[in-house]
């Protein structure tokens, strides 16, 4: 059985690889501030693990994220390659990682199916996973901020783009 979670078509990674990461950084900073404001319980559950540094690697995208949850000044930023001095590295497809945050997927099941790979401080991984699962973070809603009422249509548009690109990628691969 193994994996049941789809990966993004390689054409997406190819298309966004040349783009600079700079414009992404303020959006990520805003996102993490909104999450801090709306879900303070995450930090209580993280406890001492809030001071750890987490590397999050969407394996089907050409960049990764570093999360430093620190209670007072949480940071989230994008990097081309994860630094080596992280406490934790969590790798998996973009759909896996967002599914974990949205609460649609089970972390242990993704570990059993080898969809998610974890390395480093396993206590910190569990604390982060449990804190996020309890917080019920609506990632897309938080990202859209005041426009969150458009979350449904935005999600459908994004899913449609991925569907079309996946189809295109399959046709291109066959040709």
């Amino acid at each position: 059985m193994l994996s049941t979670v789809p990966t993004l078509p390689p054409i997406i990674a190819l298309a966004i690889r040349p783009l600079p990461l700079m414009p992404l950084q303020p959006l990520l900073a805003l996102l993490v501030q909104r999450i801090k404001q709306h879900h303070p319980g995450i930090f209580e559950r993280l406890d001492c693990h809030a001071e750890k540094r987490f590397g999050i690697d969407p394996t089907d995208l050409p960049f990764a994220f570093v999360l430093e949850p620190q209670r007072l000044r949480p940071r989230l930023f994008a990097v081309r390659t994860l630094p080596t001095d992280l406490d934790v590295r969590i790798g998996g497809s973009f759909a896996c990682l967002t599914g974990l945050i949205d609460g649609d997927l089970d972390g242990d099941a993704l570990f059993f199916s080898r969809d998610v790979v974890i390395e480093g401080d396993i206590e910190a991984v569990l604390a982060l996973r449990n804190a996020i699962d309890d917080a019920q973070v609506d990632m897309l809603g938080e990202a859209l901020g005041p426009l969150s009422q458009w979350k449904g249509p935005v999600r459908r548009i994004l899913e449609e783009i991925v569907r079309v690109l996946t189809l295109f990628d399959r046709i291109a691969t066959r040709a």
Binding site: L2, F112, S113, R114, E119, I122
Partner: peptide
């Protein structure tokens, strides 16, 4: 607990003991 990725295999360790080594396409525990 420690997990180590080695050439597609995942090696799980508990304390000083190697518990398992899962091949690339083998479900883990």
């Amino acid at each position: 607990v420690k997990y180590e990725a080695r050439n597609g295999r995942i090696v799980s360790r508990l304390g000083d003991f190697t518990i398992n080594a899962f091949e690339k396409d083998e479900p883990a525990g």
